[in-house]
Design a protein around this nucleic acid. Sequence first.
DNA 1: GGTGAAATCTACCTAGG
DNA 2: CCTAGGTAGATTTCACC
Lengths: 151, 151
Amino acid sequence: MLDDTDKRLLAALQQNSHLTTQELSDMLNLSASQAGRRRQRLEAEGYIRNYTARLDPARLGLSVQAFVQVQLGTHGPDQSQSFARLVNLRPEITSAWTLTGDADYLLRVYCEDLSALNSLIHEVLLRHEAVSRVQSQIVMDQFKQDAPLPT
Amino acid sequence: MLDDTDKRLLAALQQNSHLTTQELSDMLNLSASQAGRRRQRLEAEGYIRNYTARLDPARLGLSVQAFVQVQLGTHGPDQSQSFARLVNLRPEITSAWTLTGDADYLLRVYCEDLSALNSLIHEVLLRHEAVSRVQSQIVMDQFKQDAPLPT
DNA sequence: GGTGAAATCTACCTAGG
DNA sequence: CCTAGGTAGATTTCACC
């Protein structure tokens, strides 16, 4: 199980994974070798899935973010698989979840502009045979952003 | 602007930010010094916001993920600020967005179990004076997960 | 908890277009 | 003059004590 120091270490790495073991050890009141050893143990035990770089969407020219809810009209496994393949092909769709409810999907999308979002909805999603309804909501502001997981 | 090598570098770092400059240079057919320099330049120009560790929610005992939509009944700036403060206080809420529509919020939450989610909804969110409606959908499956941003 | 060898990063230097 | 590749000193990691 995780003690309090483990939790603080995981919280710190979620905010900045480029902390050195020396910096970590200062934050946790540990020696550098102990901080490094804890990090290795938490990685080996599967608490840390991977280390990633977060980009700035606006800096990349991706000015429109949206969540798109999709409902399928026909609910067979074939339709679901075909829809999943479509989702995986589209780079604007960065994440996709299956939600409780009747074949209800939630997509997170990043587009250059509104017309690209509309094109995705009308010329890609609604064109798919199994899709019965699409509803999008554009993100105006993200006022809490990827806070550390509650441990 | 970004050339093709920059884009591939950013895509690689989004999937594994612990790649060494040597590994990056192999992937990009560059020398190690050039790969490191490009990385520095992209950081300095603001394309990379930060480097983070992604944890495994299930490994941490967070077995329930959900998206919660919240509508406020009264729409003044005071109510919004008060609601934003509440959101920031709750560790289960890891992200929060303001969406198009009338004071409509989307929250991403991670809970230990269903009862913790219900407690968050009924004893925290619905207790707030400005909240008029709360609708939650539980994540059954994430079939696309934080793909690299389309560059 | 500490230490040292190995790996890694990065500032500087040189070469080529 | 700008971009690419090489090198060496400094930093960081990690296996061992």
